[in-house]
Each structure stands twice: as C-alpha cells, then as structure tokens.
Design a protein around this nucleic acid. Structure first.
Lengths: 220, 220
DNA sequence: AAAAAAATTTAGACTACCCTAAAAATAGAT
DNA sequence: ATCTATTTTTAGGGTAGTCTAAATTTTTTT
C-alpha cells in the first residue's frame, strides 16, 4: 500500500530526530515537530507500527525499521533534489525553497526523481550544504565542525547550516557568508563569545555566538 | 481558505466537461470523470457551492463561477507547464507525463509557477498541443480542425491530440506522427473511412477513423 | 398524462487524521 | 520506597471525503 503525505512526514521527522545513532524518539518530541498533540501522535505511531515502518513499544519511544528508513531517506532525497532545482534552475534564494520542497518531496514517481537527479548533474549537497542520499538510499553525513569549535587564527570552509530558518539564512546573505566561502576567526570575545571573522580573506565582521552555533565548517 | 487537492480536481474536471460554452455539467458525468459515486459528487458540489466556486441548483447540474473558473485555469496552467518541463527538460515522452503532472499541478506556490514559466521560455502550448493559460488566467482555445474534416489532397499541420491516453500517443510515435509534422491525405477509404496519409512529404501510412478523430490539425 | 426509467439527492456509515479530557505508566524527588 | 510530576495512552468525538441503499426528482416512453 502507498504511504500518505502525512505518514511520509512522520517518517521524515522521526529520521531527523533520531539522529545518526538512530536513538528512540519520544511522542512529545514528535508532537512538537509535527505541530499536533501527543494523542494524535500516538494514533499515527500505532498505524506506522502496523505497517511495519517503525519499532514501537508503548511508552518506550520509536525507531524506524529498515523499511521506514528507506521511505524517510527517499523523501529526504526528493526534498533536497527539488531544493537544488529551485535554487540552481529557477533562481530562488536558499531562504525561499524549504516550504515549496515540503510539497514537492511527496510527488511519487521514481522515474521523475532519477531524471531530475540527472538533469541537475547528480548533486551531492543541497543549497544548505545537506547531503543528498543516492538513488540506492545511501546517506552519508559528512562530519563537519561547528564554528564554535574553531579557534582564533584558523581558516575554515563554510560547508552548511544547522538552522534553516529564512531569517537566519537572510542574515547570512546580508553578512556575505555563503556556502564554500573561507572563514578566518580573527578574534573571539571572551565576554559573549562573539567572534570577528574575515570572509574570503577580505572584509571582516562580527558574528554572534548564536550564528556561530549554526554554521557548519571544515578545516582545509 | 485554501482549496484542497480534491476540490481543485473537481473544478478542473468541471471546466473540462463544460466545454468552451460553459454548459451545465451533470452529476453523473462528474462521477464518471472522478471515478467516484454520484452520491459523493453531490456532497462535494454542495461544498463547492458553499465556497462560491460553482453555481449549483439541485438536479440542475453545475457551472463554474468566475472564482471557480480562476482556480480551474490556474490548475490547468500548472499542469501544462509541468508537462512542458517534464518533456523538454527531463526528456520524458509525451505519453508519460500526464500522471506526474496530475500531482505537480497541486503545488501551491505562485512564485514557483511564474519562475517555471520563465525558465521554460513562456511556452504557449503543452506537449500535446493544448494551450497554456497565461499568468493572468487568459486561456484561448485555438480553433483547430479534426483530421476527419480534411479532404483528400489537403495538406495540414499536426497541432494536437484529443485523446491523451498513453496507448494512443505511443501509437502515434510508432507511426511517426509528431506535433508540427505535415500531414497530407492521399486517399480516404469509403468503406471504413480509414485514410492514407503522407507524413512530411515522404512515407505514407494508413490511419484508422479512430485515429483521425483524435488528431487536431490546421490548414497552412 | 400517467407509468416506467434514469438521474440525483438524502440518510447513515466508514477511514484518515486530528482534537480534548481523563486514565495509566514512567521518571524524579524526598 | 513512596509520593509527585511528567509523559504517554485511551476514550470519545469532529471534519473531509468516500461508500451503499433508499428516497426523490426529472426525463422518457407509451
């Protein structure tokens, strides 16, 4: 049987919340993420468990089964490929594409996904730096650093963001921080942990701890 | 309030069935087209009427209101633009795109549609020769001939199809009949109204009345 | 113009997904 | 180890969209 729009969203969110260790996800966390009440989550969990998509024991939280994992990763693949399309082909900003991709990710056709992938040149990362699962369902999370883990004087490459909120991404745009740029921490303020950062070797600016916490980077 | 996937489908189908004269559409015709029962159609009609999207009097059939027409045409615009995308950019055959576009046509973002339109170079017709409504909602149906109305010796341009069934389109592919090709009727068989047709001035083939009835053409 | 046939609507019910309120289970504090 | 707070589940219910069966209206036939 086909999975509904709603079921796919639950699986996607369970995947995101269980992290790379595949930890148990709680009912309340799901209620929060799906903007529904805990009671509604319980209903859906029973249903997903009946379909063999999650491991579920009452009061014990949930994990994806292998089959549930497959569905979740397929949805993530579609979401991220469509985001690449929207940014690369249609010229949307990286702050504008999430909502639209939330709808596009549920289009079923397998053939469509593979042709889209090929049309886009088999991109490995989406416009926010998130890795795109391959056609076989392999998803390898690169182990980036968070900018807060980088010391003064170090030069790093900007590889992704943790926060996908439009307001955060627009803030980065205004600061001139883009995927792939070189960041060099020139100073860290002891008092509030705000930092001075040089971008691509030239203009320098202050960024708050809040921003640093959400920037994924890589040593070169 | 937003219109649901299902509501949009009803409006689109009412538009199609009422033709360019905007004739009343019957409950049974809608039940047939939506693959549901007449009772279900009645329920939905009451709902659409409450929302001001259709004119509905019990037992009297329905017509779209101006606001319903706007929604229907927007859905048609999206459907046909996505079909162009699927064929022109992703390399699908014209026989493969209908189902996928049935899903894509319900993606809401207005911005997406306008950017897609622009990315595709503002196409006027979809891969089946159907006209694409413009951004303001103007839809002008070109007045093509049906091939059965063309006499022996006449040369016409192949402009569209009435039947969108994959099997019919595949049959045209095998016959070498494509959008824009020149068809010349060399002979019409009096017995079964099958015809001999020259394609682009060269190879000749037989086509049945059934096929002729579904080909839209234009005198040059 | 009445009877028969066909089309349409109403009545009552089902599934998916969501809700609130109350009950039950787990976790935390003393 | 028990009591309390928190989390989760159950119970009962609502809306959207579908169904079947029965009632009603319109159309067709005679």
């Amino acid at each position: 049987m086909q999975n509904s729009f709603t079921e796919e969203n639950y699986l996607k969110i369970i995947h995101a919340l269980s992290g790379r260790e595949g930890l148990e996800v709680t009912t309340n966390a799901l209620a929060e993420s799906t903007s529904t009440r805990a009671a509604s989550v319980t209903d859906m969990l029973r249903k997903l468990a009946d379909k063999g998509l999650i491991h579920y024991k009452k009061y014990q939280g949930v994990r994806l089964t292998e089959s549930g994992e497959k569905v979740a990763i397929s949805v993530i693949r579609k979401h991220r490929l469509w985001e690449v399309f929207l940014v690369e082909k249609l010229g949307f900003g990286w702050d504008e594409v999430h909502e639209i991709a939330e709808e596009l990710e549920h289009i079923a056709s397998k053939e469509l996904v593979e042709r889209l992938d090929s049309f886009l040149g088999h991109p490995r990362f989406d416009p926010h730096g998130d890795p795109i699962p391959d056609a076989k369902g392999n998803l390898t999370e690169p182990d980036y650093l968070i900018l807060t883990d980088v010391g003064v004087g170090e030069k790093v490459l900007m590889m992704g963001v943790l926060d996908h909120a439009p307001s955060f991404l627009q803030h980065l745009d205004r600061s001139g921080i883009t995927l792939g740029c070189v960041l060099e921490i020139t100073e860290i303020n002891d008092y509030d942990k705000s930092a001075s950062v040089r971008i691509n070797g030239s203009n320098s600016l202050f960024i708050s701890l809040e921003v640093s916490k959400n920037l994924l980077v890589q040593r070169r």
